[in-house]
Design a protein around this nucleic acid. Structure first.
Lengths: 246, 246
DNA sequence: GTAGGTATGTCCGCTACCGCACACTGTCAA
DNA sequence: TTGACAGTGTGCGGTAGCGGACATACCTAC
């Protein structure tokens, strides 16, 4: 598909004014991101930033005893490697490809230079970071208060939003890692959704049959995050809406 | 106490080069922050940013059903109101004074202007934001995997680090709100710590007797966050260590 | 076809935590 | 002194999710 190879499938790149985009374009390198690939290891240095197009990448915190939890998910609405321009150089989280596909990457130095111009790119990246913070916070609350059923629903919807399909390739085992729960817990929750006619699945393939019903089933966390992402980013046509820091 | 009224008790203000600090100083307004005071309401506009000196402020997410959870805590190492310069204008979280004391506030417009100069202030604020992100992420994981005992220990240590004392004024009811658990759960966890000779308390006053023991008792989350804050901020003498974005 | 691995389903006892109810005890004000 | 109340202790049944053990189904490679 030609569309798959268009950097502007990534919302951040698409939101840049044309001249800004063209300055970056020659340096954007198309990369294929395979399922399970680790883009950043916890504490590791960042050599590139990634702009996913049709792939999804999870930010995971892995603990000493090996248990883990997803703290945010990044798709074509965002960028991976924010700690680069935030000044940390390293991330404390691990970035794992959750749904394979493509993305564009940019050398770290180049992004820093662009960020330091202080123009639209900087404002856009900061806004996205703000949206990411919201997602992380809501994840914290969701972990505390909501059932696996609800969290699974949220996770499915967030994944769907970042794909161009109603299907995803993902085993229950992997979902359990993301949610930080047991695989059996996911089996049970998924069974309920299937019995309700909301999804069907088998051996690593999940298909959403009734999205409206799924949206009824989910906790408020999904809508909060989506709304905030939309507020901060979607209504950001090229070269506009950058007046907030004036 | 005179020291209480020194803006440089706040680590961020203290880390600024002298000339930068002096430009801000005339506009810094000392404010008293009372227990329970709400600095920002969820979704509200931000008119000021706050630099706590000897107070502690919690960032809370409050859900539709009224249940809540603390996603981060800010004391004299930080600033409240980051979404101002991140471009969001509003925060999705509520900021509540958890330990009364003082802080300095700065009009929103002034901070934005300072941020936009792109100098040390900007770099410092971004680094702090990065540290805050780490704290939020670790909170998400801690909510998922750790017991109330461990979380209470973490919460106590994080509070102690931001005070100048081994005592804090805080009822179990309020701690429960912060941790997003039942009051009874906190009573039980606190009872264990008391029986172990680690703390003593009565009617809203908690005194830590044996901090080393408390540190043995806590989950890894505490150390991870503390280390990251230190890495990003403590080794940032005035006017130095700002080369990361060159 | 058959074997072996991967993905899913199911059952068990167990524990942490919840929701609720109510008793006790310092503290402070009338 | 005496309420009144905020803060804390405690007990009880209920449940969600855990840890572990296994059974089943499907997919692929030989």
């Amino acid at each position: 598909m030609a569309a798959q190879n268009d950097p502007k499938q990534n919302h951040l790149l698409a939101a840049l004014p044309q001249n800004e985009f063209e300055r970056l374009a020659p340096h954007l390198e198309l990369v294929s991101l395979a399922l399970g690939e680790v883009l950043y290891e916890s504490g590791g240095r960042l050599n590139h930033v990634y702009f996913p197009t049709d792939s999804i990448v999870s930010l995971l915190y892995v603990m000493e005893d090996g248990s883990s939890a997803e703290i945010a998910v990044v798709g074509n609405e965002g960028i991976l490697g924010i700690s680069l321009f935030m000044g940390g150089e390293t991330t404390p989280s691990r970035a794992v490809v959750q749904s394979e596909g493509f993305g564009y990457r940019l050398p770290a130095q180049l992004l820093k230079r662009e960020f330091n111009r202080g123009g639209p790119m900087m404002l856009l990246l900061l806004r996205y970071t703000q949206a990411l913070i919201t997602q992380m916070s809501q994840t914290a609350v969701c972990n505390r208060h909501h059932s696996i059923d609800q969290q699974l629903s949220r996770w499915l919807l967030m994944s769907l939003d970042r794909l161009h399909s109603d299907e995803l390739t993902m085993t229950q085992e992997l979902i359990a890692n993301m949610l930080g729960v047991r695989r059996e817990g996911v089996t049970e929750a998924a069974g309920k959704l299937r019995d309700a006619g909301i999804i069907e699945y088998s051996r690593g393939h999940i298909k959403v049959l009734d999205r409206p019903k799924l949206e009824q089933h989910v906790c408020e966390c999904y809508a909060v995050v989506k709304k905030e992402i939309d507020r901060l980013l979607s209504d950001t046509p090229p070269g506009k809406a950058f007046s907030s820091l004036m």
